[in-house]
Design a protein around this nucleic acid. Sequence first.
RNA 1: GGAGAGGUGGCAGAGUGGUCGAAUGUACCUGACUCGAAAUCAGGCGUACUGCAAGGUACCGUGGGUUCGAAUCCCACCCUCUCCGCCA
Length: 428
Amino acid sequence: MLDIQLLRTQPEDVARRLATRGDEIDFTPFNALEAERKSLQQRTQDLQAQRNSLSKQIGVLKGKGEDASAVMAEVGQLGDELKASEARLAVLLEEITAFTSALPNLPGDDVPVGADENDNVEIKRWGEVPVFDFDIKDHVDIGAGLNGMDFETATKLTGSRFVVLQGPVARLHRALAQFMLDTHTAEHGYTELYAPYLVNSASLYGTGQLPKFAEDLFQVPRGEAEPYYLIPTAEVPVTNIVRDTITPAEQLPLKWACHTPCFRSEAGSGGRDVRGLIRQHQFEKVELVQITAPEQSAQAHEDLTRHAETILEKLGLPYRRIVLCTGDMGFSSQKTYDLEVWLPAQNTYREISSCSNFGSFQARRMQARFRNAQGKPELAHTLNGSGLAVGRTLVAILENYQQADGSVRVPDVLQPYMGGIKVLSAQA
RNA sequence: GGAGAGGUGGCAGAGUGGUCGAAUGUACCUGACUCGAAAUCAGGCGUACUGCAAGGUACCGUGGGUUCGAAUCCCACCCUCUCCGCCA
């Protein structure tokens, strides 16, 4: 959510900056709502003040045992207008909130302006793209050859976009998550977290998935009660830890690492990435979350992105970092780096991590604050990034480390997690 | 799932229709005393909106209702605790 003061005082500027995201916002209805709100709120509060003062008089008179009927008649005349004013004001405030909570975040000043993913800017590349002297396979064929990856059975169990992993491939998948968590906690200063996989709508509103993106979520009905939702990312439960709290400044930054499954309905992703592990309804991710003071967040964003890159480097996977342009950023983000890993079978880089600084956008929705040097509560900044998406990392390893006989080398850093296994082969 | 109790300021805890945004204790901040500290004493100490200011308004789990007036009464929901049952 954007600062409503900003919307009131410089709507043209806000509209201009949102336009760079491709969102053409007409502030005319907002300005009209605000104008009515302002006068009506003053009038309502004035009436409330009169009522309060007269009611107090009634109390005093009755306390003395005197007759209060004259004053009661007077205050009774306020009643109808007051009720109408309060009701209308509630409607106005609801409409204003509906408008503001649907506005995306403002792009940072240093974010390149662009229309879509073609305007993203590559920042760096790391690693040597492997050269193969044999006909390479994609991860689906490699996985099948290892007898470790079965999409047909998963389709029987559930439906499309699910998978069953088996044997050493399943173990490698687990090893990756363990390795990522261990690295972030031991070397990057994050505290490990275990968090709920089902959340309520307030949490999803806090991080910005609701109200606009309900169709991307799996909902769990609970009869009469409010539904729960399967988390689309650990960002939701972890960031919402600080919802409605005031954190002492000396505890910042909060740094959390959390490994969870993620569930996405992938509505509207139609025929994209139907083959393989790239786009599933359920996948594992190790998420990094930081809660910082405003002046710390830009540096924290750089640090957090480096933490994710470190995983790729330790695994020896070639990648590049791009900065998303204004038109390609997520709803809540102020600035986003994507890390893209090299996938030989696709002959291209594919997203494996997305690291964002949300500024105060989520914090304002969540009322996540800290006590600043003046002792006053102030909105914190929130950040998160994948460190990394486990399923896609598995894909990258299978494809980049494949050998002519269909076996796959295990990266050195993972071997301790694999009981010393150095190569995955069909016999293993 | 059944029965009961309860949700008030950082924490503890009073308040069952009127001058209550809310006693008291504690924690915290400032000052006095002290070489310094402890103890003691005095003062301060929620959030948000609005106003140049004085001030005004809202908030006692959430949402409705009754009333001139609600922390207090009524209804629904959420959550917590205790006991019983069930259970990874």
